[in-house]
Design a protein around this nucleic acid. Structure first.
Lengths: 334, 334
DNA sequence: TTGTACGCGTTATCAC
DNA sequence: GTGATAACGCGTACAA
C-alpha cells in the first residue's frame, strides 16, 4: 500500500504538499496538482484513515443508540439518520439495546465513547440515564431524542421532543368519540406504568371521561408482531370482549389484527383497533390500520442536523421544533 | 482525556507495562495489575482507538454492502450480521446500494476500502463487479453472498450461495400443481431478464409445462410494497385476469395483496398469490402469504463466520454448505 | 518481568 | 506556495 511519502516522491514534491493538495487543492500550484494527481493514480494511493484520524482526533463516525431495528419504526430512524450522515461524509455505527437484553447502562458502558465524533441516543424508556451519560461525556456532542418534554442546559446536548403523549390523547379521544367504552390497552412493560408517557396519557384521557379500561396488557417483551398476537390472547381470556383495542405501536397492532382474524372477529364492526407510529405496513395491511403518525423522518433528520452543527460548527443555539403527531384514519376504525 | 502515560505514572510503572496489562494481563505481576487497575479507574482511562488502530493497522470494523434495509429481508441480513459481529467485538458499517441510486460500482469506489478489516457483499444483482472488486483488493478478506452458484479460487474470498432459482422452481411447480395456468410474474428489473436467476428459473419451469406467463411485470423500482401495488395495477389492465400471481419477494407480494383487497378480488379463490423470502410479515399478513423460505439468518451468520476466520485465523479452507429454500404454505394459496 | 526507544502515516506549524 | 519538523497515543523489539 502506497503512502503519502511515495506519492510525494513520485510527484517530485514534499509530503506536506500532497497533504495540502488532498485537503485544500486550491492552495497548491496547478502544475503541482497535476503531477500529484498522476502520482496518486499511478500508485493507486488511498489516504490511511488510521493515521488521519489519530492526527485530527476525529473518526467522522457517529454512534446511534437505538432499539431493535427489526421494528420498522426504528429501522426508519436508523436508516434516515444513516442517509443524512452519509451526505455529510459521516459513518454511523448502530448500537441496539436489544443486544444487551434491554439494559441501557450495560450498552453505554460498552461503547468506546471517546472514539465517536458524536452520539445520538434514541431510547425513549430511560431518559435519565441518557442524560447522565451525556453529562459524563461533556466533550462529545449528543442529540437525545425523547417522547417527553425534557429541558437541559448542557452545552453538548440537544434534546429533541416528539409529543407522543398528545398523540395517545388524540387517539383515545377518537376511540371514545366513536362511542366505544370497553377499551383495551396493549403496550410493553418497558418501565413502571406511572412512568410511561403513553400509558399515563391514555389513563388520564380515560379518566376525563370517567372510563376505566376494559383491560391493560403490557408484557415484558420486545415490540414485535408476536408480542401483539400474544397480548390479544390474554385480552380474549376475559369473559367480556372489548369493543376497541388501543395498541401503542403499529407492529404489535398488526399482531393483534392477525389474532382477531384467527378468531374471525370482525374489524372494525365488532372491535376497532388503533396503532401508533404509522409504519409503511400500517397502510398496506388489510384491514389498513388507523394510527397516529409521528413525523419520524423529520425528527431523525433534525437529530442528525443538530449533531452535525455541534460537531462542525461548535455550539450554535438553534430553534428546535416540537414534533406533533396526527391521526391517520383507515379501515380498522371505520 | 487521560492517556496511557498518565496511567503509567500514577501506577508507578512504565507505559509499556500498562499496555501489556491491557493486552495480556497475565504477563504482568499481580501487584502491578492492581495498581494499574486502580489508576485506570481513578483517571477514567480509555485507550485511544485512533492510536491503537494506527499501530496495528486494524479497525476491527467490517463493511456490509447490501440493499435497502427498509426491506425486512435485507434488514434481517444486516441485523444478523451485526449481532454476530458484536459478539466477536467487531463493528459493522452498512453501505446501501440505494444510497447511490443502485449503482454498485459508484458505491464501491466511494468506500475507504483500506480501512476495513473485512467486507461482506450482499448484492445479488451484480456478482461480476463484486468479484472484480475483491480481486482488486487482495489484502482484504471478503465474503460474497450470491444467489447463483459461483466458484472462485481467490485466496481472500469466500462465496456463499443460496439456491434461489431452485426455490422459484419449487413454487412455480406448486402453483401449476394447483391447476392454475394463467400465471403472472412480478419482480423488479434489476438486470436483463435472461440474467436474472429467479426469472429465468420461472420461465424454464413454465416451459417444461408448455405454459406461457399470463404477464410479466418487472418495474425498474425498489423492492417495496408500493412497487408491488403498482405492478398489480398493470396486471389488472389486461383484458383477462390471471388466476395466480407469483411475486419474487414478499414485500412486493404484500403490495399485490393489498391491491387485490382494494379490488375486492378474493384470495385464494379467484387468484392465488405467492411470495419469496418468508419475512415475518408473511405469516402475520391477512391472508397469510404462501412463500419460499430461505435460511437467511443461517446464511448471514455463516457469512460473518467465514469472514471472521479469514480475519483472525488466516485462510482456512472450510466446507461451505449450500443453503436450500423450502416452501411455506399459508392462506394465499389454500 | 519491566523500561527505553522507535515507528505507524498523517496533518499543523512555521520558517523560507 | 512549499518543505522540514514535530506531534497525535499506542504497541513492541530489544535491552536491562
Amino acid at each position: 500500500m502506497a503512502v503519502i511519502k511515495d506519492v510525494a516522491k513520485l510527484a517530485g514534491v514534499s509530503p506536506s504538499t500532497v497533504s495540502k493538495y488532498l485537503n485544500n487543492p486550491q492552495s497548491v500550484l496547478a502544475k503541482n496538482c497535476e503531477k500529484i494527481e498522476m502520482a496518486i493514480k499511478e500508485l493507486n494511493y488511498r489516504p490511511n484513515l488510521f493515521a488521519r484520524q489519530l492526527r485530527v482526533q476525529d473518526s467522522h463516525t457517529i454512534a446511534l443508540i437505538a432499539q431493535e431495528i427489526m421494528n420498522p419504526f426504528h429501522a426508519t430512524i436508523y436508516n434516515t439518520i444513516r442517509k443524512a450522515a452519509i451526505k455529510k461524509n459521516y459513518s454511523v455505527i448502530l448500537y441496539s439495546i436489544s443486544d444487551v437484553g434491554g439494559e441501557l447502562s450495560t450498552l453505554l458502558d460498552s461503547i468506546p465513547r471517546n472514539y465517536f465524533s458524536g452520539i445520538i441516543v434514541c431510547y425513549f424508556h430511560d431518559m435519565d440515564k441518557s442524560l447522565e451519560f451525556a453529562l459524563a461525556n461533556k466533550d462529545i456532542p449528543f442529540t437525545i431524542m425523547s417522547n417527553i418534554p425534557y429541558t437541559n442546559n448542557l452545552e453538548n446536548v440537544r434534546l429533541l421532543y416528539g409529543d407522543f403523549a398528545h398523540g395517545i390523547e388524540m387517539i383515545t379521544e377518537f376511540i371514545i368519540g366513536k362511542g366505544r367504552k370497553k377499551i383495551a390497552y396493549v403496550g410493553c412493560m418497558t418501565r413502571q406504568p406511572d412512568q410511561e408517557p403513553k400509558f399515563t396519557s391514555f389513563m388520564r384521557t380515560m379518566g376525563r371521561h370517567n372510563l376505566k379500561p376494559h383491560s391493560v396488557v403490557r408484557l415484558q417483551k420486545e415490540y414485535r408482531a408476536e408480542t401483539g398476537y400474544e397480548s390479544l390472547k390474554i385480552i380474549l381470556e376475559k369473559e367480556e370482549r372489548p369493543d376497541a383495542i388501543l395498541v401503542d405501536n403499529d407492529i404489535m397492532a398488526i399482531g393483534v389484527l392477525r389474532g382477531l382474524a384467527d378468531h374471525k372477529i370482525k374489524v372494525p364492526d365488532e372491535i376497532i383497533v388503533t396503532g401508533f407510529d404509522d409504519i409503511t405496513m400500517a397502510s398496506f395491511y388489510s384491514p389498513a390500520l388507523t394510527t397516529v403518525r409521528v413525523p419520524i423522518e423529520a425528527m431523525s433528520i433534525k437529530a442528525f442536523d443538530l449533531l452535525y452543527e455541534m460537531m462542525e460548527k461548535g455550539n450554535i443555539a438553534t430553534e428546535i421544533p416540537v414534533f406533533v403527531p396526527e391521526i391517520v384514519v383507515r379501515e380498522t376504525t371505520s
